[in-house]
Design a protein around this nucleic acid. Structure first.
Length: 1137
RNA sequence: AGAUCCGUAGCUCAGCCUGGUUAGAGCACUACACUGAUAAUGUAGGGGUCAGCAGUUCAAAUCUGCUCGGGUCUACCA
């Protein structure tokens, strides 16, 4: 007894997922899929480590599907694809989660809870949802090695990070500097860029903005201004600020070197005193009305709305350089000598615009990054008049100790910015004070405005390698290309040094120790180096081991966890004999993940060969939000470390000649960045809106296959996708339903006939046209799907598979071949049909395996368990199909398309005249334009006739005089040649008579007269179609036109009745629940109107309904009443014993 | 503010790179068929100023520029 194909009641995708998952786990299918490729060329994939302290969402399903399908595809293509998993474990999200859980703030750490306890909690909490992640990984069918993942908090991992930092340090790429950073006075902490990018951080707020006047001092540089003004007049530089609290810290005024400025004579609108002010020419209209220009200033008096104004002089910004001005708000605390530079000068900066303000930028180096930079360049010094609580320091008169913003939620708070503005107004130093609405960053935790504040920080000098990074980026295959060239390329072009410092607790400590005076410093690059230094320090008596403790053990213990606070307890001794303590900073977590190519293998301390084989990655994929995150840090570190890597690899035996070629300084060769997943209305998913899709529920309801297929085929992965459950339902029904039906159909009949693919493979030439056609289409599909996946275009590939299954396989091949499966003996034709359909199903399963791994394996196993054709236990251990060019027959595919079109047209005609398909008709007329077309049609004639139920196909050619032809220009061919004459030719062709067309066809050329010039038209420069057959109802598509003979002769009507009768009996068979192979007995109550039909087509009817005979009886007592083309009759059907 | 992606039927998307004269598919809706795959299928119908404006061209959904709307990323904004 041969094995049967499994048959099912209905499609249950979640059940299939579960069944296959259990099989995979029992058979270690994933591990096997890697082992089976041992020795093969590796395809290197890097897993971007997720942070397991949050729940996975549906957006993780799409990026992981993308990763998984590429890895599965490459495995099937013969590569060995190891996928080492990983966990990102450090950083702010974890810390915040812990603080929330414990109900503490950052300030409590070290007080209410020890740092050791705190970090221990972080270590525990960070993998809080690991089980959920693992479950998602399993259930969605993401194959990744989670048995030996890299974990960023492990000592070995950190040791590699230290090695990297030390390499950078030694190459002078790691340095410390003061920089202006976002700082939250309310929270008392600096904010990372990550924090600043929390949703809702930037808010529109109304602040008091002030246009203030800095009084110019007459000197060599400003002489030209004073000369232009009246003798003894005061001249002011006008500057705008939305943060008046920074004015006491003002030390400079920055102008754009190429911006035009003017000196304007006018009045102060508040004090009404005559003034002369300097501002950008382009912004004059913002402060002055045109009708006020050059009117007599004598007439101006208090209360006048219209300010008179006159331009006295004009100059470029660079002409103002080095002008000096009086300090605006002088106090004890901000005395000029305290600035530590040469302040109160006009300086030049490229960042100045004339978009708003006055074109002159008030510059307080302490509170703006641009200010700091330009201030440093001109040595104007720095004044920090605000402390870290966000209040003015002592010595600022009436403003001393006042908060610059309401950080404490004080209901009595009086805005100091208003008071400053009022004071300036009174002192004739303000030109305009108003509320100004702008976008300003806020601390996402306290909801209070942040300020920019000078803080010490460590940087990586990425800008030193900028050119290299830009060049190398051009060698990376970005999907989509625009992200690499645009978003990422621009980011590289505008790169700034990487601020590594974080003042937190749970992260990788910066391995730099220094003496208190900062003169001696050491960077540690390994645990061995750490121990060596410790050893020295113990010997010097700086770190005495506890009494009775073994020194070796003591050192071992101290170095067993490189986190805070333990690492901070370590004190070194400097060469000068002084104690050295670690600098307090931790490093940016993005450094952790960017270093994963090295740290995951504990390079260079071990696994140098493994690393060498797994670097760089062939492929990585993450969400587009990682462009400036992981994609950047990977790229930056690869570029920075190029030489260090070469050194290590050279030392381990990699030939010098190969180094540049194999390790050009990139971390990945191809990167796919997928877009966001939005809800079905296009809104971002957020817990707040309650539109978050639970991936577990989705996969539970629809199975992983339909979910994955939908996510991949609905839109290109890099477009943001609108996630709609109805879309998954459609996928399930349309694609999986159709494919399942096709399998079910196959299994049904293959089981009846006992087809197990034991017979020899029937050569293609011996198979019928339709089989050769579907196999040709199949191979065309293989080629296109392979090309699509090679090009990282899974959406294109998936859609091609869908189209094939739906349009070609199910709705044409199977539909037209149905009879071949159930009719007649198990002979040659049946064998061909089974072999062909089997091959299609098996191949489709393999093509879809990367995207929908469960269903594909299920289909494969169902087929394979009956035939044993393949030794592999899983489809994921087989090879991806290769297209066989010799099977592809383009003319065959074309004529089948012709047949499909012709059938569709005939059916539409039948519809139009309301003649059902079951009623045979005599003939279809098809005008043929050339012998080739006729030839093609003849080969598919039988298919068309069967499909549309007509007796004959008649071809009409010119000679018959039936066809009416139509001509139009072939625009593509003629366009270049004719250019502007195109329209005239088009018109001329429109006026062609049938004779003209015939002449052109006969002679091959035709001479037109266009604008009195002769123009020779060749036959291939026009398109001739037949659009009409006079006297017939026709339908047409492209160059194909069909006409249908709709006459139902009595002969045809009898046949139609017979077919209708068969149909009714079949229905009864089915209602009675007979097996397909049961034979039956039929009795019919004699009806004159049908007698002829039943007699004439007796044989046909009997063979169709598996009856030995049809017995016509006069009376039928217990028959079933049926209706055949409006004729009522009674029949009795019984199973033959 | 800059960069980038997107805007085609009620909905989801093809087509655009490489311009060519009736702009396609699926879903949904309506009607009618078919049915020995049947919770499947076919045919037909309605539904589009291809976001808008301008330009290049004989010809623009397609190329260019600008504008508008939506998303994302980045940002030191005075």
């Amino acid at each position: 007894m041969p094995n049967k194909y499994k048959e099912y009641q209905q499609l249950n995708l979640p059940a299939i997922s579960q069944e296959i998952l259990a099989k995979w786990e029992a058979e270690r299918a994933f591990e096997r899929s890697v082992e089976l490729r041992a020795g093969a060329t590796p395809f290197v994939f890097y897993e971007g480590p997720p942070s397991a302290n949050g729940m996975p969402g549906i957006h993780h399903v799409i990026s992981r599907t993308l990763k998984d399908l590429v890895c599965r595809y490459k495995t099937m293509k013969g590569f060995q694809v190891k996928r080492k998993g990983g966990w990102d474990t450090h950083g702010l999200p974890v810390e915040l989660g812990v603080e929330k859980m414990l109900g503490i703030t950052k300030e409590d750490i070290g007080k209410k809870i020890s740092i050791a306890e705190y970090n221990e909690t972080c270590r525990r909490e960070v993998l809080k949802y690991k089980d959920k992640w693992d479950e998602l990984t399993r259930r969605m069918g993401y194959w990744v090695d989670l048995k030996e993942p890299y974990i960023t908090f492990q000592n070995e991992y950190i040791e590699t990070l230290w090695w990297i930092l030390n390499e950078l340090y030694n190459k002078d790429l790691l340095y410390e500097s003061v920089s202006i950073q976002p700082y939250s006075p309310a929270a008392g902490t600096g904010l990372s860029s990550h924090e600043l990018n929390q949703p809702g951080t930037y808010k529109d707020v109304k602040d008091t903005s002030a246009v203030v006047m800095f009084k110019a001092i007459r000197n060599k540089e400003s002489e030209f201004l004073f000369k232009a003004a009246a003798a003894g007049a005061e001249i002011f530089f006008m500057a705008w600020t939305t943060t008046p609290w920074t004015l006491p810290s003002n030390l400079g005024l920055t102008v754009g070197p190429n911006i035009d400025y003017v000196l304007v004579k006018t009045f102060n609108p508040y004090t009404h005193l005559p003034i002369n002010i300097v501002l950008a020419k382009a912004l004059v209209s913002k402060y002055f009305k045109p009708e006020g220009e050059n009117i007599d200033p004598e007439g101006y008096k208090e209360g006048d709305k219209l300010l008179p104004w006159t331009v006295l002089a004009e100059c470029k910004g660079k002409d103002l350089e080095e002008c000096r001005y009086e300090q605006l708000l002088p106090y004890e605390a901000n005395a000029p000598e305290k600035a530590g530079g040469d302040p109160f000068r006009v300086i030049l900066g490229d960042f100045v615009t004339t978009e708003d303000g006055t074109g002159i930028v008030h510059t307080a180096p302490a509170f703006g990054a641009d200010d700091f930079k330009v201030g440093k360049k001109y040595n104007i010094g720095i004044l920090v008049m605000v402390d870290r609580q966000g209040k003015f320091i002592d010595g600022l008169g009436e403003f001393s100790n006042r908060y610059v913003k309401n950080y404490k939620d004080d209901p009595q708070y009086v805005d100091v910015n208003v008071d400053i503005s009022v004071k300036l107004k009174k002192e004739n130093r303000a030109f305009k004070i108003e509320k100004y609405e702008h976008n300003y960053p806020h601390c996402w935790r306290t909801d209070k405005p942040i300020l920019y504040y000078p803080l010490d920080a460590w940087f990586i000098r990425t800008t030193a390698l900028k050119d290299r990074m830009v060049e190398l980026n051009k060698t990376i295959n970005w999907k989509p290309r625009s992200t690499g060239e645009g978003r990422f390329g621009n980011w590289l072009e505008n790169m700034v040094d990487w601020n590594l410092s974080r003042s937190r607790y749970w992260g990788t400590p910066l391995p730099i120790w220094r003496t208190e005076d900062g003169k001696e410093e050491i960077c540690i690059g390994s645990i061995a180096a750490l121990r060596a230094e410790l050893d020295k320090s113990v010997k010097a008596g700086l770190m005495p081991p506890p009494v009775g403790d073994d020194v070796e053990k003591y050192i071992q213990k101290l170095t067993s966890d490189l986190h805070k606070p333990f690492v901070d307890e370590i004190i070194f001794v400097s060469p000068g004999g002084k104690p050295m303590r670690r600098v307090p900073d931790l490093i940016d977590v993005w450094f952790d993940s960017g270093a994963m190519p090295y740290a995951q293998w504990h390079f260079p301390f071990e696994n140098i060969d493994t690393f060498a084989q797994n670097y760089p990655a062939d492929f990585i994929a993450e969400g587009v939000d990682q462009t400036r995150g992981w994609f950047y840090t990977l790229h930056a570190l690869a570029a920075l470390l190029k030489e260090s890597i070469h050194e290590k690899l050279k030392a381990s035996g990699v030939p010098a000649a190969d180094l540049e070629r194999l390790y050009p300084g990139i971390a990945y060769k191809t990167v796919v960045s997928n877009g966001l997943v939005l809800d079905k209305n296009g809104n971002k998913m957020s817990k707040r809106l309650g539109n978050v899709v639970d991936p577990f529920k989705t996969i539970g309801d629809f199975g992983a296959d339909a979910t994955r297929w939908y996510l991949i085929t609905n839109a290109s992965p890099w477009d943001s996708m609108k996630f709609d459950i109805d879309g998954i339902k459609e996928t399930q029904r349309k694609f999986f339903g159709t494919l399942y039906n096709t399998y079910q159909f196959f299994a049904l009949y293959a089981n009846v006939d006992g087809f197990n693919f034991q017979e020899a493979y029937v050569p293609l030439k011996d198979r019928p046209e339709i089989d050769r056609w579907i196999l040709s289409s199949l191979n065309t599909l293989i080629a296109k799907v392979g090309a699509g996946l090679d090009d990282y275009e899974p959406t294109v590939a998936g859609r091609l598979i869908e189209d094939f299954v739906d349009e070609h396989l199910s709705n044409w091949y199977v539909r037209l071949s149905r009879r071949r499966f159930w009719k007649g003996d198990y002979g040659h034709d049946k064998l061909c049909a089974y072999q062909t359909l089997y091959e299609c199903l098996e191949t489709v399963a393999r093509l879809m395996a990367p995207v929908s791994p469960f269903f594909a394996d299920w289909l494969f196993c169902n087929l394979n368990s009956a035939t044993g054709r393949n030794k592999a236990a899983s489809i994921h251990h087989t090879d991806f199909p290769e297209a066989d060019e010799s099977v592809i027959d383009v003319p065959l595919e074309e004529r089948m398309q012709l047949a499909q079109d012709a059938s569709s047209l005939v059916l539409s005609l039948r519809k139009k005249v309301n003649i059902k398909v079951r009623q045979p008709l005599q003939k279809v007329l098809i005008p043929v334009l050339n012998p080739g077309m006729k030839h093609q049609l003849e080969k598919v004639e039988d298919l068309v006739k069967a499909e549309v139920n007509v007796k004959e196909l008649q071809y009409l050619s010119d000679g018959d005089g039936f066809i009416k032809k139509k001509i139009k220009p072939n625009f593509i061919a003629l366009g270049k040649k004719l250019g502007s004459k195109m329209k005239a030719v088009s018109t001329a062709l429109g006026a062609f008579s049938q004779e003209d067309i015939a002449k052109l066809e006969k002679e091959g050329i035709y001479t037109l007269s266009i604008e009195s010039e002769p123009l020779i038209l060749k036959i291939n420069e026009v398109e001739i179609t037949s659009e009409d057959i006079p006297g017939w109802v026709v339908a047409g598509k492209d160059t194909l036109t069909v006409a249908l003979d709709v006459t139902v002769t009595p002969e045809l009507a009898r046949e139609g009745n017979a077919r209708e009768f068969v149909n009714r009996i079949q229905k009864i068979r089915k209602d009675n629940g007979y097996e397909l192979t049961d034979r039956i007995l039929v009795k019919v109550a004699d009806v004159p109107a049908l007698k002829d039909s039943l007699t004439q087509f007796n044989d046909y009817i009997c063979s169709e309904i598996l009856a030995d005979s049809i017995e016509l009886v006069a009376e039928l007592a217990n028959g079933t009443e049926i209706e055949v083309n409006d004729i009522l009759l009674k029949v009795f059907v019984s199973k033959k014993a």
